[in-house]
Nucleic acid binder design. Structure first.
Lengths: 242, 242
DNA sequence: CGATTTCTTGATTCTAATCAAAAACAGTGG
DNA sequence: CCACTGTTTTTGATTAGAATCAAGAAATCG
């Protein structure tokens, strides 16, 4: 398995401490969200679609995604989850959800019941605030996805997507595994798989990237950023919310 | 001004009580968010774009929208706010926001500083939970917008948009004012204004709707729902989160 | 009532979808 | 290690949906 999607020690605490300093009590409170670990195989569903799901998951290692399937069988990928992210926040409070969460690689995740969140709110307003901030960041990413799909053409969309993945992975190396096929990329960006193939070739021809089966090399990050008019603002958290 | 966008008494409390029963203390706490009212003219910006904004707004009457403008001048409308909604939640915690909030009609809104939210979290976990639920609903709407833009063609998109507006307005009468021009509708749905005009004509020709300057009449709601495969699930809150 | 904005309609162009088939690749078991 | 199978990717040809350009009609505003 690729290092980029490898293990994160106590993933949620780690994630939170990037944002704020936690007291011992708060760390312990958060740790209660991670008391049982489950492993999923690549392709396995974390939640069965349609069935009401009472769990969140904190993703420890591997990759997952959220997929919405339409009545006519079309699919839309809503998010690709990296280690440290919380899976399922987006459908909190909804009567019934038709979002399906699926493992993209073999992965480890900690399921915890949605009620735990309420307990956390009661015991620590500070943590409530952080969950709020995380939710807001998710939302900012969704907004950026709307802009991307709605306003950019295929090469721009793909370039934006690749830059976003690179930024979120945070690796210095412009070189990472992307273990999803072109069909799923298309379902993320709202273009057909055939056109994804053509567009990847186009970006290769421009010398911006190289790719072969699930491996991306970014040759010209600035070029991709310029092409897609990528603005990282939506990934950055305000200091005062830390 | 149209009744549909008319006054809501103490809008946020009203909104919250649709979801949960509030104690006297909680009502008072919420009321602190509405202690000063401001009026904005149609077309006026609530927040100046680019400038850091420290305020939320609870919308009391009128309509507003959130717009993101790209570097090349293209616009994307992210949300259309109805009375009772909170404007600005989506950009909480973000370092810098390039979302612009603009009045679509003459409107009344209550600005309150973002810090107030933290105070509420400290004093009532129950209210924190409701804010969370509201945020989740916003997010569900964004997800639906992604699906709409990404997966449906122009007539389907427009039909979906009209059904959503009707559902959110909650009016029994399939007949409402929509005080935004076709250019803005296009910027909401990711199609050009010219194509909005053609598509509206198409829906009229099918006998599904009637429209003239800012006024929509839905003749065949079921037809629109079927055309757009509209599923209201994303607007409905789960009972256990109430 | 003139001026400006918005809406409609037509003609053309372009991007991406679809259809179809071949090539590359990954996984399987002999 | 290689043949067999199924999946994924590539490439080409065609079609469809929507953008763009342009100009006239309608509505709104002062």
């Amino acid at each position: 398995m690729d290092l980029a999607f490898g293990n994160v020690r106590s993933c949620i605490v780690h994630q939170f401490e990037r944002v704020v300093d936690l007291t011992e009590d708060e760390v312990n409170l958060l740790m209660t969200l991670e008391n049982n670990e489950r492993e999923f195989q690549a392709g396995e569903e974390l939640t069965r679609k349609g069935k009401y799901n009472n769990y969140f998951y904190t993703l420890q290692s591997g990759l997952a995604c959220a997929i919405k399937t339409l009545a006519d069988g079309q699919r839309q990928v809503l998010d690709i989850f990296l280690p440290g992210q919380i899976i399922g926040l987006q459908e909190i409070g909804l009567k019934n959800s038709f979002t399906e969460f699926r493992a993209l690689t073999r992965l480890k995740a900690h399921p915890f019941p949605k009620q735990s969140l309420m307990k956390i709110f009661e015991q620590s307003p500070k943590l409530a605030k952080i969950f709020f901030t995380i939710m807001a960041r998710e939302q900012a990413m969704l907004i950026e996805r709307i802009v991307n799909i709605s306003r950019r053409n295929a090469p721009e969309r793909l370039a934006h997507f690749l830059v976003e993945m690179k930024m979120r992975l945070g690796s210095c190396a412009c070189d990472f595994h992307l273990p999803i096929n072109q069909s799923l990329i298309g379902d993320t960006l709202g273009i057909s798989s055939v056109h994804v193939s053509r567009t990847l070739k186009h970006l290769r021809d421009l010398g911006l990237i190289d790719n072969k089966q699930g491996h991306i090399v970014i040759n010209d990050l600035d070029g991709l950023i310029k092409l897609s008019s990528f603005d990282s603002g939506y990934l950055e958290t305000s200091p005062e919310w830390k």
